[in-house]
């Protein structure tokens, strides 16, 4: 197989990989919590497509039993079924994620991760400083 046929013959995988990379890249690079969730969705969709495309049998019909017909090639139904579950899981995850984003927005007033992290770190630092101060005060007292 040449490189070209490699690319062309396995195009579905290339598409999946591209989608996957896009999803991952969004999750790594975007600070907006909603965008991250969208990246996650794209990433999940790529997997769904991976499964669905691997269930396809070349020349096969959709896996619906045709009465009386012999020698019919059916596509594999199982990956589709599995993906129904995966889609449900994905939807649920997205829902929980979005709900959390709403709560983040309420609690922090922003949905940018770097800002939230900065606020958190400021809180952490304050706590640490208070701890150190308490320790120092205690040290003097003792």
């Amino acid at each position: 197989m040449t490189f070209l046929s490699n690319v062309a013959g396995l195009w579905n995988y290339w598409a999946v990989i591209t989608l996957m990379m896009i999803g991952l890249y969004i999750m790594i690079s975007r600070g907006n919590l909603v965008k991250k969730l969208m990246g996650m969705n794209i990433f999940q969709v790529s997997v769904i497509m991976l499964y669905v495309s691997m269930g396809k049998v070349a020349g096969g019909t959709p896996p619906i039993l045709i009465e009386g017909a012999e020698d019919v090639a059916y596509s594999n139904p199982l990956p589709h079924v599995l993906m129904l579950t995966a889609i449900v899981v994905g939807v649920a995850t997205t829902a929980v994620g979005l709900a959390l984003v709403v709560r983040v927005k309420e609690a922090y007033g922003t949905v940018e991760e770097d800002e939230v992290v900065a606020i958190d770190q400021a809180t952490d630092r304050e706590e640490a400083a208070a701890a150190r101060a308490a320790e120092a005060a205690h040290g003097e007292g003792a």
Partner: peptide
């Protein structure tokens, strides 16, 4: 909340 969110993203991956 933020901890849960982070875990959600990472855990889903």
């Amino acid at each position: 909340i933020m901890a849960a969110y982070s875990y959600l993203i990472v855990g889903t991956i």
